[in-house]
């Protein structure tokens, strides 16, 4: 039986009806049409669905939509402001940190959460910060570089 919930995503409130077992990722993608957050494994193993909830990087595929009520949710769609890329996003573009781009939204959300909490992470801290985000294209090198440049 579907229930009406209210989600606050990227500083806007949305009312939507979901079955109680539906995840935040499904609610974002299927109900709200925010398909920027990706599904790579649906098991919490790849990080492609990472969003930020109340300042922490969280796997949207392991979070029930109902449990996300009353919290501040930031998705990849909310990172650029007024059509201007954030410096972190710009670095991903400029430093070649993107190839297929499927892991990119989750990767940026993990990196953003890391930098928001620790603006000057070491290389080891960056690697740890994105270790839950799998990438099959880049070998992580240019992703780490893009984050490190931002941290400088």
């Amino acid at each position: 039986m579907k229930q009406l919930i209210e989600l606050k995503v990227n500083e806007e409130s949305y009312e939507t009806a979901v079955d109680p077992h539906r995840t935040l990722l499904e609610a974002l993608r299927e109900n709200l049409g925010m398909t920027g957050s990706k599904e790579g494994c649906d098991l919490g193993a790849c990080g492609a669905c990472t969003v930020i909830i109340d300042g922490k990087a969280v796997l949207a595929c392991l979070t029930l939509a109902m449990d996300a009520q009353g919290k501040d949710i930031t998705t990849i769609e909310g990172v650029a402001k007024e059509r201007k890329l954030s410096p972190l996003q710009q670095n991903f573009v400029d430093y070649g940190a993107i190839q297929c781009g499927y892991c990119t939204p989750g990767m940026i959300m993990s990196a953003k959460a890391l930098l928001d909490e620790n603006p000057k992470p070491t290389e080891a801290e960056i690697k740890r910060g994105i270790s839950g985000n799998l990438c099959r294209c880049t070998g992580y090198t240019k992703i780490i570089e893009a984050i490190a440049v931002r941290a400088k």
């Binding site: 920027g36 990172v79 650029a80 573009v93 190839q99 781009g101 990119t104 939204p105 940026i108």
Partner: peptide, 14 residues
């Protein structure tokens, strides 16, 4: 940089 870079960092890329 790649042509589709902006689409891919914003979630626009479908």
């Amino acid at each position: 940089p790649r042509l589709d870079g902006v689409a891919k960092v914003t979630g626009d890329a479908r």
